[in-house]
Every structure is written in structure tokens, then in C-alpha cells.
Design a protein around this nucleic acid. Structure first.
Length: 569
DNA sequence: AGTGCAACTTAGAACGGTTCGA
DNA sequence: TCGAACCGTTCTAAGTTGCACT
């Protein structure tokens, strides 16, 4: 009910966001999942304890202390995963597991390879089976309980608005799984206790009480930040936050601002491009490097690429942190001149592989940057993200490296939609056009996915359906021909209907085939100005539900309210 | 300029419920 | 009616950016 009052025109949003600090936050309550895990831990002692078979004394079981047992169960639950076989994972796990052992356990359990977790593993498999085998009623009951928990803990009051909290559950303990080749995989992610928790709310707010006998680390009242709760995590030592859902006012305003900045860039991108092209000729190496890096960020939508501490994370790079080994220069390749072959691991260790023809000047510069360097040397040794962003800030207020990704993603969607939407098409065909435009963006941003395991089979199934439909259509056409005049109209309608169904299936097949290795979700959620899609829907009479599901409509409510059919990015 | 921290956005994997076709 | 495929949701890791401090 409140939405309508709060969300009005574009202007009201702008005014509000200019004010800066939010005012009042009242915590309704914080989840007590920490309490629950305590109880669970406690209870497991009254159950028959798990055993680890220990190979040195054949046939002997070992009853573990509760702390060592819990950590062992984390490992047992993951046994089916490939990464538990990795040396780094095992080494890290075993080291942290031993820290939880009693001195007796420590002296007995000295080699992970001699531990047999299969009994534990079976126990959890059986548990998951029995969970699956629950009756409808039991499942319904759990669902209702989850809903109750959501209602009780999942909301807060900010500036007198009840807002949904995104991640209101404290992260449970477990074994850390980084992405890619992570040096810390397998380490124990420890349990968060009330003493780790900082609560942030307004002074007069009734904030949740810590579990009996415990204290929060701190209760503070900082209205310059948006988080409600924070704690420090033990793997990287970084801070974790509980924040609001994307549907909240505070997130929506930020999102809108982000796209407005990208639209600002649209106005001056020609100037900026002219400047960096000019800078390719600079006498100063640092300026040339800056200009070539910016060209990559603009043309290829690369991320900025901060330096990372070696050995703390997986070895991944972005633009500024590219190394010589990540590029191969080809004077000529497949009939094209000056081709740069990129091959590196980006965020989340997703591979970026691309062969790009570049301007001669860029090519010559790259040769220069790579001269007399080892493969593991930085390509841009006179550049980092801080230098680059400082330069961008001078070119346009609010401009940073990531704005280029947002800008290029959104402008591509807009251009593609303008170009390929055919107003004569029916709804499924128009949606195919939309998905194709979305795909162009996903390819630009390198949002890949592994082809679904069942891809080939599901394509085949679809083809079978199409063949059957074609058969059906042929039948209908024959019947139409032989039908008497009075039945013709009815027959004609019938075959029209079948034709439409066939067309729908064929569109579906094309869409799925083209989407084989591409993930659309990330760009849709984070890079594409939703007003482009809303306007497109309005212009071509497409129901918004065909483009955005419920959650997405909630997140983009501001755009759905705001954008008219003639909005252009 | 370099470093480290804090706060925020972006990301794919895993999970679990729903739908669809045999 | 059942299982496979699909699709949305949850989870939390992994980025970017700005700022304080030296």
C-alpha cells in the first residue's frame, strides 16, 4: 500500500536520493539462527555419536568429541564433490579439523587418508532421503514454518517503511569453498556467535536481544551506511553484512542512480573515446597504458582489475591486472590484421577467451608494453585501478571503470531492440528478438554457463514435438482441402491454430539452441537499465511478466512505474 | 603514491519447488 | 502418476570503489 505513495515521478526519486543519509531504522528483529545451531549442537550429543573409522587399528571406531565430530560431518556431507579429492582442500581441512580435536584425538588421528567417513556420509544421505519422502502435509508444515520465520525475522522498518531484508540468516559454519583454484578451499568457516555481531539501527529503536547469557559485540547507530548487521568472517578477514532486499527503496534508488550515471556517459562517450585514441600517441608510457586499458574496458567490457594479494585468493585478473601471459599478439590471423588473443581467468575464475582485431596503434603499443617482459609480468606496469579511476573522474563526474560495462550493456540492448524488433511479429517472435538482444549483451559481458547436462536430449525432445506438430498441420491442411464449403471456415481456423502452435515451438527451439552456453540472468539483473525493457514492453504490447518474473518486477518496480513507451536509454 | 579497510555491487552454484510430457 | 526438465530462490564468494592514514 505504501509503495504508491513513496514511488512517484522520476523527480521525487531524484530529490530523495540527493538528501543522502537515511533517517530512521528500527529493527523488527534479527534471526536467531545462531541460537538454533547451538541447540542442534547440543542435541547431537544425546544422539548416538558418529564414528570415524580409523585405519591404523582395523575395525576400530572412534567416538569423537562434539567439536571434532561437527567438523568431520562438514567433510562427510561433501564427499560426493570433486573438490574434496583435491590436495589443497584436504590439507586445509585436516589442519583446521585438528584444531578442533582433543589432545587424545589429535594424537590418534594423524592422517586424513586413514579416516573413513562413509558411515557419516550414509547417515546424511539417509536423512536427505527421508526428507524427500515426507508427505505433502509434512512438507506444507515446513513451508508454513519458513514463512513464519520470514515474517518474524525477514523485515525491518526503515524511514517508517517496512522493508524486506535480503539475507537475514547468519551464515552457518561449514567448510569454505572458493571458486576456481582457491588456496583456502577446505578451511573451516567458523560459527558466528553473538559476540561477533554488530547491530546498526537508530538510537530509539528496539533492537533484537542477544540470546540469553550472551552479548552483541556492539550496537551502533550509523545512519550513513545501509547495513543492519555485520560481522567479520574468518577466512579472508572481510566484513559480511546483512542488508535490505533489492526491492527496498534504498537499493532501488542506488540502482536508478547507477543507470543515470551510465546515461551521463552516453552524452560524453564520443569525447572520451576521441581522447583515449589520442592518448595512444602520448610521449608518456603511463598515459599510453591508461589509454589502451581504457580502450579494452570500453570495447571488450572488461572489469577494472584490482591487484590481489597472492596466495589469499584464486589467481584471476581484470583489465589493469592483465599479465603478459594472458595476451598473444598475431600480426595476422584468419585473414585479419593485428589480432589480439586474450586468454585469462576473470571473476569467479570464469575463462575469458577472445580473438579481437584491434587498431594498428593499439597493437604497436601492446608490443611495446610486452617488450623485455617475462610472461608473469604485468602488462600495464604503470597503471592500476586507482590511477585509472582518478583519470575517469576527471573526464566525467561519477565516472569509474565499471560504468563502461553498464553503459555498453544497456546501449547494446537498446540498439539491438530498436534494430531487430519487428512490430508485425506475434508475441513469441518478439520475445525471441528480446532474448537475442539480451544475448548480445551477455556475450559482450562474457556471462557464460556450462551447457546444461541434459541439453542435447531436451533439444531432441523439442524437435520430436515439432515434427509431430508438422504432421498434425499437414493432416489439418488435407482435411481443409477436402472439406465442404460450409465446413471450410471451421477447418481453416483449426489449421491456423496448429500453425501458431508450430511456430511457437520453433521459436522455442531456436531460442534454446542459441542460449546453449549463455547466461542471461546476470546482465538482466545488474547491467540492463530496466526502463529499456519496460518501455519496449509498453511499445509493443508485451506483458511485463513475459520479461520479468515476480522477484524481478519487485526489484525493478521503480522502472515499471517510471518508464513510458518512448523511453530511450 | 601506497596500503588497508569498509561498504557496496556483481556472480555462479546449489537447492528446491513447479511444470510438463510419457 | 511419476520422473525429468525447468525455473526461481537462496546462498555467499568475489569483485569494485572510495576513503583514511602514512
Amino acid at each position: 500500500e505504501d509503495k504508491g505513495q513513496e514511488r512517484g515521478s522520476c523527480h521525487r526519486w531524484q530529490e530523495k536520493s540527493k538528501k543522502g543519509a537515511r533517517r530512521e531504522v528500527e529493527m523488527v528483529s534479527l534471526t536467531s539462527s545462531d541460537v538454533k545451531t547451538w541447540i542442534q549442537l547440543f542435541c547431537c550429543c544425546s544422539e548416538p555419536a558418529f564414528m570415524v573409522f580409523y585405519g591404523l587399528s582395523p575395525g576400530k571406531h572412534m567416538k569423537l568429541s562434539p567439536a571434532a565430530e561437527e567438523v568431520a560431518t562438514f567433510f562427510a556431507k561433501m564427499l560426493d564433490h570433486e573438490y574434496t579429492t583435491k590436495e589443497v582442500f584436504q590439507k586445509n581441512f585436516f589442519k583446521d579439523w585438528r584444531k578442533e580435536m582433543t589432545s587424545e584425538e589429535k594424537s590418534k588421528i594423524t592422517d586424513l587418508k586413514k579416516c573413513d567417513f562413509s558411515e557419516m556420509s550414509e547417515y546424511f544421505k539417509a536423512q536427505s532421503e527421508s526428507r524427500k519422502a515426507m508427505t505433502k502435509e509434512e512438507k506444507q508444515k515446513i513451508k508454513e514454518e519458513n514463512e513464519r520465520i520470514l515474517q518474524e525475522y525477514g523485515f525491518c522498518l526503515m524511514d517508517n517503511h517496512k522493508e524486506r531484508i535480503a539475507n537475514f540468516r547468519i551464515e552457518p559454519p561449514g567448510l569454505f569453498r572458493g571458486r576456481g583454484d582457491h588456496p583456502k578451499m577446505g578451511m573451516l568457516k567458523r560459527r558466528i556467535r553473538p559476540e561477533d555481531i554488530i547491530i546498526n539501527c537508530s538510537k530509539d529503536s528496539k533492537h533484537p536481544k542477544p540470546p540469553p547469557g550472551t552479548k552483541w559485540k556492539e550496537v551502533r547507530h550509523d545512519n550513513k551506511v545501509t547495513w543492519l548487521v555485520s560481522w567479520t568472517e574468518n577466512i579472508q578477514g572481510s566484513i559480511k553484512y546483512i542488508m535490505l532486499n533489492p526491492s527496498s527503496r534504498i537499493k532501488g534508488e542506488k540502482d536508478w542512480q547507477k543507470y543515470e550515471t551510465a546515461r551521463q556517459l552516453k552524452k560524453c562517450v564520443d569525447r572520451i573515446r576521441a581522447q583515449y585514441r589520442d592518448d595512444w600517441k602520448s610521449k608518456e608510457m603511463r598515459i599510453r597504458q591508461r589509454a589502451v586499458a581504457l580502450y579494452f574496458i570500453d570495447k571488450l567490457a572488461l572489469r577494472a582489475g584490482n591487484e590481489k594479494e597472492e596466495g589469499e585468493t584464486a589467481d584471476t585478473v581484470g583489465c589493469c591486472s592483465l599479465r603478459v601471459e594472458h595476451l598473444t599478439l598475431h600480426q595476422e590471423m584468419d585473414g585479419q590484421e593485428y589480432v589480439v588473443e586474450f586468454d585469462f581467468l576473470g571473476k569467479d575464475s570464469i575463462r575469458y577467451y577472445n580473438k579481437v582485431p584491434v587498431e594498428k596503434r593499439v597493437f604497436k603499443n601492446l608490443q611495446l608494453f610486452m617488450e623485455d617482459k617475462e610472461p608473469e609480468d604485468d602488462l600495464f606496469d604503470r597503471l592500476n585501478t586507482s590511477i585509472l579511476n582518478k583519470h575517469l573522474q576527471e573526464l566525467m563526474d561519477g565516472l569509474t571503470a565499471k560504468v563502461f560495462r553498464t553503459y555498453n550493456a544497456s546501449i547494446t540492448l537498446q540498439q539491438q531492440l530498436n534494430e531487430i524488433t519487428n512490430s508485425e511479429d506475434n508475441v513469441p517472435a518478439k520475445i525471441l528478438s528480446y532474448n537475442r538482444a539480451n544475448r548480445a549483451v551477455a556475450i559482450l559481458c562474457n556471462h557464460q554457463r556450462a551447457p546444461p547436462k541434459t541439453f542435447e536430449k531436451s533439444m531432441q525432445n523439442l524437435q520430436t514435438k515439432i515434427d509431430a506438430k508438422k504432421e498434425q498441420l499437414a493432416d489439418a491442411k488435407r482435411e481443409l482441402k477436402s472439406a465442404k464449403a460450409d465446413a471450410k471456415v471451421r477447418r481453416d481456423e483449426k489449421s491456423k491454430k496448429i500453425e501458431e502452435q508450430l511456430m511457437k515451438l520453433e521459436v522455442q527451439a531456436t531460442d534454446r539452441e542459441e542460449n546453449k552456453q549463455i547466461a542471461l540472468g546476470t546482465s538482466k539483473l545488474n547491467y540492463l537499465d530496466p526502463r529499456i525493457s519496460v518501455a519496449w514492453c509498453k511499445k509493443f504490447g508485451i506483458p511485463i511478466e513475459k520479461i520479468y518474473n515476480k522477484t524481478q518486477r519487485e526489484k525493478f518496480a521503480w522502472a515499471i512505474d517510471m518508464a513510458e513507451k518512448d523511453f530511450q536509454f
